[in-house]
Simulated scan of single mutants.
Amino acid sequence: MTYVNKGSVTAIGVIFPVLVVISIAIRAWGWRKYSPALEVDDFLIIPAAFLTIAAGVAMVIGAQMDIIGGHAVGQITATQQHRLGKLEYAFWIGHVLDIGFIKLALLFLFRRIFKGRAFRTLFDYTNWTLIGLVILWTLVFFLFEILACGATPWVSWSSLYSLRHACVNTFGLQTGCAVFSWVLDVAILVEPLFMIARLQMTLRKKLQVCLVFFCSIFAVVAGLLRMIIWIQIEVQGTTGPHTQALATVLPTTDQEGIVSIIVFWTYVEIGVGFQVACLPTYARHLDKLPLSGLRTRLDSLLSILSPSKRSRDSSKTSYPPQKSRSDDEIELYQVPVADGV
Rank of each mutant, 00 (worst) to 15 (best):
G100L: 12
L279R: 01
D339S: 09
Y267D: 02
G176L: 02
R325V: 15
V221Y: 14
T238C: 06
T252W: 01
F114R: 00
V186N: 14
T121K: 00
M65N: 11
A78P: 13
H71R: 13
S216C: 05
G293E: 07
K33H: 01
F171Q: 15
Q275N: 05
G240H: 06
L294G: 12
Q64L: 13
V276Y: 06
L106Q: 05
K103N: 07
L211A: 12
R198N: 12
R226D: 15
T253F: 06
D42P: 05
G85Y: 00
L189H: 00
C167W: 04
F119E: 03
Q334D: 10
E331R: 04
L250R: 15
Q200M: 08
P320A: 07
K103D: 04
L207G: 08
N5S: 14
I131H: 00
Q80C: 02
P251S: 14
S311R: 05
L122I: 15
G70Q: 01
S314I: 15
P47Y: 07
I76Q: 06
N127A: 04
A58D: 11
F123N: 00
S292T: 07
V272T: 13
G240W: 03
V73K: 13
L143E: 03
R112Y: 08
D287E: 11
F214L: 15
G293C: 06
S159T: 09
G7Q: 12
S292E: 14
P307N: 02
I258G: 08
Q236L: 11
L122R: 11
A197T: 09
G176N: 05
T10Q: 14
A55K: 09
F101N: 11
M195C: 04
L203K: 14
C278K: 02
D328S: 13
L246V: 10
I24Y: 00
E234S: 14
T152K: 09
Q244S: 03
Q244I: 05
F101K: 14
S324R: 12
T121Q: 02
S35C: 06
F144H: 01
I99W: 07
F180A: 13
L291K: 04
A283C: 13
I99L: 15
A338D: 07
L298K: 03
V9A: 14
R226C: 10
L143C: 09
I146Y: 03
I113C: 01
L147M: 01
T253V: 15
R112F: 06
I330E: 12
L246R: 02
L207Q: 04
